[in-house]
Amino acid sequence: MTTASTIDRPVRQYDFGTMWLLVFPATALLLAFLVIPTALVVVLSFTDYELGKEGLRYIGITNYSDMLADRVFWQSVRNTALYVALVVPGSIFIALAVALLIERRSVLARFYKVAFFLPVTATLVAMATVWEFILHPSIGLANHLLSVLRIDPIRFLSDPDWAIVSLAAIGIWQSIGFNMVLFLAGLSSIPKEIDEAAALDGAAGGIDRFMIVTWPLLGPTTLFVTITTAINAMRVFESVAVITQGGPNKATEVILYSIYLEAFQYFRTGYASALTVVFLLVTVSLIILQMRLADRKVHY
């Protein structure tokens, strides 16, 4: 085939056979694992289907209205929101501080990067068991350290006020490493000259330099980190399932754990589907929000 014929060929003479063949693998996988299951969940959410039960009945929005009237559902929404509200700022600001400290180091920088990143690679189910021991009310390391500081022991996991905070601390510990790596990448993309220009302009101190250069130029990174951390925090499950099972007294019941209970403990698949649809809508709207913001505000 010559170059001329490629250019001269009319646009509509596509080779549709080849086209479909090339698109088929990706399309099939998307349909099989994403589109069809999602559609089924949406359909099931309007039925009274229970796992293992034969036959199902269309019940309209009953599942949804039940959900809105369910005290446990609202409890799990509140718990999830509190968990996200603690993990997102905690994880972001600690990760940013760690990244800033590591970036300035010449010695041991690599060691610190690995050390902070290790929790990301660890299996959370196993790590959750370790945390359970650390936070154990009588034999745990955490209360032992508090006793050294003459602070009364705290029932980290069995006190309803503390349980979600303790889980959030584990969530922060687990997500710092990943966010730190993202912030380090963001920091390394800040042109050195802008830092130097700021130094000559008189922004000598850390606060001024941070306010004029680092924080604004990290804007896109920070937005991305915020949204991914928020989405990940909303999906909290392992630590709840392993350590508290939603207790004490539903103080750590979160949305994903509710879905799990409804679907696989009580086999109320229809109701669990409705919960999943709501969860999916919240996640998707967060992603859309990120894309909107990324286009508008943080790009300069």
Partner: peptide, 21 residues
């Protein structure tokens, strides 16, 4: 002395303007 205390101003080859301002 750090740059701030030298009372010098500099223009960089690629200008080094603050892109967000």
């Amino acid at each position: 002395d750090p740059p701030k205390e030298r009372d010098v101003a500099m223009v960089f080859q690629n200008y080094a303007l603050y892109p967000h301002l």
